[in-house]
Structures are given as C-alpha cells and as structure tokens.
Design a protein around this nucleic acid. Structure first.
Lengths: 200, 200
DNA sequence: CGTCTATTTGAATGTACTCAAAAGCGGTGG
DNA sequence: CCACCGCTTTTGAGTACATTCAAATAGACG
C-alpha cells in the first residue's frame, strides 16, 4: 500500500500525528518526491529555502561557513527527519546554511502552497508539523547545554550512545566538525578511548 | 490604558501579533500577574512547569545541573521574553531546568487552561505564540553554531554586541557560565581585551 | 595502479583549566 | 561611620589538552 515510503515516516504519521491509513494516503499525495545524489545540495547559503523536505532515504549534513571561512556542521539528518532551513522557508529570506546529501538520497518535498493545501485537507498535519518544530527546539536546547558544559570526550561518547548509526554512515572529519573540534583531536581522542578500553 | 505593562510587550502584541488595542485588553485579562523576589525560583528541576510566563519587569536565568554537578546557564531572559520550560509545560513532564529571578521581577502568567481560553478568544494569539517558539528555535540554532565554532573571546564580543544590557544587569560569573567558560578565564579574557584597547 | 581524500601520528605552541589566595565590593549591624 | 562578613572578581603558578603545521599512512574510487 505504501511502497517506497520509509517505515519510520509511516509510524510517525500514525502515532505522533494520529492519522488513519486513509489520511496518510491523502497526505502523501501532496508531496513531490525528489532524488538527490551524494554531494549534491538541496540548499546553499544565499538561496531561499523553498521546501519542507522529509528524508525518505539517505542522509544529509547542514552546515554554515563561519567568520574564518571554516565549515561548521550544525546537524546531520537521516530517514524521517526534515532538512533545510525553516527560518528561510517561513520568512522567505536568504538562508545562511548549506544542506548537502552525504549519500544518494530521496526526499519528500512540500513547497509553501502544497504545505498549506495539505494542512487544509488534513488539519492534523498542521498540529503534527508544529510538534515537530517544538521537538527539535527541545532537542536543540539539550544539545546546547551539552556543547556548553561537556568536554570533547563526553560529547563524543554522548553522540555514540544516542546515534550510533552516525558512525556507520558519516566520515569522522564531519563528526569532528559537528562536535566542534579538529579531526586530529577526534582521532587522538578515539585513540585514548581505545587504549583505555584495551586495558580494562 | 495599559498601566504597568511593559512597552516592549505592548509593541510586540501590536506589531508581531497584529492585535488591536481592544484585543490586547482582552488578551491581558487572561493573564495572572505574579511578583517574584530576587533569587526566588519559578521552576526547579523535577517540577512540572505549569505556566507560560512573560517577563513584565526584571530578569531571570535558566540553567541546568550537569553530570559533574556544575550549573550550566542556558540563557538569560529580560522584559518581554518568556521564561520556563516549554517542553515540560507542553508534555506535562518534570523539567530538567531551573528558572531563577536575578532581580525583583514581575511576570505575566498563563496556565494551560488560561492559554487555551485566550487562544479561543483571540485566535491571533495562537499564531503569535507559535511564531515565538519558531523564532527562539531560529535564534538557538545560530547560538549553537557560535558555541561550536567560536573562541571564548568571539563569544564574549558577540554577546557584548548583541545584548550589551546583560553586562549591566548580570554578574560576570553567570556570564562566564553562559559562555561555557570559568569565571577566571572570563576575567583574564576581559583583561586582555582592556589592555589591547588601551594600546590602540 | 595511481590519485585523491580521509585518518593517524609527531612536535611545538597556546590557551583554558585547576587549585589557591588575594583584593574588591556591597550590605548589615554595632 | 566604621568593622565585619559573604560574595564576586582578579591574580598567580602549574598542568592538561586542543590546536597548528607537517608528514606519513590508509582507504576509496576510477
């Protein structure tokens, strides 16, 4: 019935959004499907973000270029997450972020008109959408607290614990950028942890 | 007409929320006013946050206790901002944050029922509320990027530029915690900047 | 196989941290 | 008005750890 829709998306629509199978089918009809090759961008700094994009397959990184010209990775996004720049989308302003596929990926997109039409047709979706924003707000607050208070080693271990799949899919130097340290430091940190584990 | 309501709140309700004076008057009638003494808490970790609270006068800090038992200040809040824990409020779960007054303060509160009643009576308020959440989401993403990529000195200067009033109202050791450094480091950092300015 | 990129290793440097102590400051009570 | 107390901020010395720059190794992909 829902071929080629990631099970995580379906379960989220069923439980969090509380949609029936009929409503899900209707909702899905508003999305347009898009394939994105590894290393391609769906958003670049300076552009306006025109879509709410849900990841059906693959993964992305979102980053910005800081004052010193260095890339700073803000987050990764996997199946069922959304990716892009909400600020730019809502306010139709140029984004300051880049969103790049790290694998061959497939996303489900809504432009502003499609989103509005979908929310009209399936009102529960508007609430669902708001909850998603709220939840990413809550998650980010916790992440901020960690960035502020933890040592690099603690950040690394926390990431390993919460999202072990990251280490199966994302190159280490990207993870270093996400953790706010240099790749060399991450390498040494991992070395320290390894030798510590060997001993005990 | 609106005695004892901070002008920033009024102008926000007028412009961002787009309320008429009549609607503002109606909206305000749903709030309950509360006085909070310096050092008092309106939220402690473990409690459920029962109110949406807007600051009418005074300022607050929100912090958590990290694994090592150290306080980590997530943000300060001043007139017109809200304070508390949205996550806890929405999901009726125990909070992990503390919210403490740093001056004698006055807040305008809505419990869940009052908020719902207000949104029914003045529908624009619901949209306004959502926008507030979105905006704090956007701001936090930028803050996260800065925490990740900037040196303590850059963070300090950015804070000084964006919220100079912070330095008039908040003790330095709290600012250090907010910046993610030790008070000693902040003191030395300031010393370096001072002597650099003296020379040039 | 060769090239390009990612990861590791090395050595030197810088800066924030810890612990400890002194100095500054504000408020209270004698 | 002054002395004292608690709290904040500054200063000092030594250490730890991330950074930089450089180079070597390892992997991926054509």
């Amino acid at each position: 019935m829902f071929e080629n829709i990631h099970p995580l998306i379906l379960s989220r629509l069923r439980t969090t959004a509380g949609l029936s199978d009929g409503e899900i089918l209707e909702a899905l009809s508003f999305f347009s499907r898009r394939f994105v090759e590894k290393k391609d961008y769906i958003l670049r700094a300076g552009e306006v973000c025109r879509f709410r994009s849900y990841i059906n397959r693959g993964c992305f990184r979102r980053y910005m270029i800081d004052d010193r010209g260095k890339e700073v990775i803000l987050n990764f996004a996997f199946e069922e997450w959304w990716i892009g720049d909400l600020d730019s989308f809502q306010n139709q302003q140029p984004s300051i972020y880049y969103a790049q596929a790290l694998e061959d990926s497939e996303i489900l997109c809504l432009d502003a008109a499609q989103l509005e039409a979908l929310c009209e047709a399936v009102p529960k979706f508007r609430v669902f959408d708001m909850k998603k924003i709220e939840n990413s707000h809550f998650a980010m607050l916790k992440r901020l607290a960690m960035m502020q208070s933890s040592t690099p080693e603690e950040k690394y271990l926390a990431l390993l614990k919460k999202y072990p799949e990251v280490f199966q899919r994302i190159p280490l130097h990207y993870i270093a950028s996400y953790l706010g340290i240099e790749p060399e430091s991450l390498s040494r940190l991992r070395g320290r942890l390894l030798s510590r584990n060997r001993k005990s």
